[in-house]
Amino acid sequence: MSFDEIYARYVDSVYSFLKFKLNDEYLVEEILQETFLAVYRNLNKLSTVQSPKSWILTIARHKLVDHLRSIKHEEVTLDHSMLVQEFSTDLVLNEVLNQLDSTAAAIVYGLYVEQLTCQELAEILEIPVGTVKSKAYTARAKLRNWLKGAGQ
């Protein structure tokens, strides 16, 4: 796969993931560029990865963490409540997601928005698959309860 194909196929996934994590358009664009620059420089590794999407999102997550470290954020584990954007589409959903810890929110995002598997999410977030599964199970139950309540 050429760089142009990769860029065309995954730029939206990276952008959307970064927007989910940050409420700073300028920073999102900067990290987007750094992510694809790293992808370009490591294109030879692509043939060895199982899922290009999770490989690229892992790079994006690392770049995001690096940036947060460099701007002296003390909490480099990506505190969701601190970083998450204010969703213009649905503030209630935002509130519910804020109640989840950052890892759980990222898992929910990955499962429903990017259609990633638990295995892929484990690779991206660098945590065991079992942790992804249990966090996903709890977070999804919480979200379903919220929906149930909203529907009443």
Partner: peptide, 11 residues
């Protein structure tokens, strides 16, 4: 839930 969360996807 899937429908709600799909709104988070940004181009």
């Amino acid at each position: 839930l899937a429908k709600e969360l799909a709104k988070l996807k940004e181009s």
